[in-house]
């Protein structure tokens, strides 16, 4: 596979240019609703409890109970142990269940264990699997192993869609981000995802742009549409709108759907709801107008 290089200066400058659009009134309202519908509401903590997960599932279905016409979130993103419970809570809704797997967040377990975890999550009913690549192997230059592992995980996903987490915060350069993106796409990823959220920096505009361009080039070459999911570090509605502008101007309207673009976030939901509340009622919202987590 040919390695593509990325001009970091140009990529960062282009990414920054997307933050300078003026989005007001109806377009802002539409953008906020779209961002909400693309949200993978995430909780990935050791201290997650069943009740916390139930609350998250309720929030994903109705982000603000008193505001009419708000979309539901795209998915909840949880650890494999919570997949069955999430499935049960979300029964009858169109919110999907995404499960991280493959020894998230490090990926440093024997392959057999990671594949078994993937199968367990898929068998429990996960609609989507968020796997991590083995950064150790990737950074050591062992691309073949990484590609083989992605293929093996994909084969164990059943009907679930596969998101491949590159953990760009550990990949050092845009060249490597591009290389990992191409590699994951070639290996069959349905989505490529920036980060686990456990490493700083998580998603940035620049890194996401590099990944969007990899998706674009793959589409132009093969006609297959791969999704992108920036995760971690996107906390405000304004940032989310910047990302949407970037998606639209890099990949076009076809990608402005929860099927092909997602935000992995938790705090973002509250800011989106607060901004939507402001747009719909004309009043600035208070922190007690949204849930605590």
């Amino acid at each position: 596979m040919r390695a593509r290089t990325v001009d970091r200066i140009a990529a960062d400058a282009r990414a920054a240019s997307f933050t300078r659009r003026s989005i007001k009134k109806e377009s802002k309202l539409a953008g906020l609703k779209l961002a909400l519908s693309m949200l993978d509401l995430t909780t990935l903590e050791g201290k997650d409890t069943p009740e916390k997960l139930r609350a998250l599932c309720r929030k994903a279905q109705r982000p603000a109970e008193d505001l009419a016409d708000l979309p539901h979130c795209a998915a909840v993103c949880v650890y494999p142990t919570f997949v069955a419970l999430a499935k049960e809570e979300l029964q009858g809704s169109r919110v999907k269940v995404a499960s991280v797997a493959t020894a998230f967040p490090s990926g440093q377990s024997p392959l057999a264990v990671r594949l078994a975890e993937t199968r367990a999550a898929a068998d429990a009913g996960a609609d989507e699997i968020d796997m991590v690549i083995q950064r150790g192997a990737f950074l050591a230059g062992d691309y073949e192993t990484v590609a083989d592992e992605i293929e093996a995980v994909k084969a164990n996903c059943g009907s679930a869609r596969l998101k491949v987490i590159l953990e760009t915060g550990e990949l050092e350069t845009y060249d490597l981000v591009r290389r990992a993106s191409d590699l994951a796409i070639e290996a069959g990823a349905d989505f490529i995802k920036t980060s686990t959220g456990k490493v700083a920096p998580a998603a940035t505009m620049g890194v996401t742009l590099v990944m969007l361009e990899a998706v674009r080039d793959h589409f132009l070459a093969t006609g297959r549409k791969v999704g992108v999911k920036p995760a971690g570090g996107i906390r405000t509605a304004k940032q989310a709108l910047h990302y949407l502008v970037m998606v639209k101007e890099t990949l076009g309207d076809a990608w402005l759907t929860p099927d092909l673009f997602r935000f992995g976030a938790s705090a973002l939901a509250n800011d989106l709801v607060m901004q939507l509340r402001k747009e719909l009622t004309g009043r600035y919202a208070a922190s007690y107008d949204v849930t605590e987590s």
């Binding site: 009043r283 919202a285 208070a286």
Partner: peptide, 8 residues
């Protein structure tokens, strides 16, 4: 009006 209606 913004003062009075600001919920925070």
């Amino acid at each position: 009006p913004v003062f009075t209606e600001h919920r925070d």
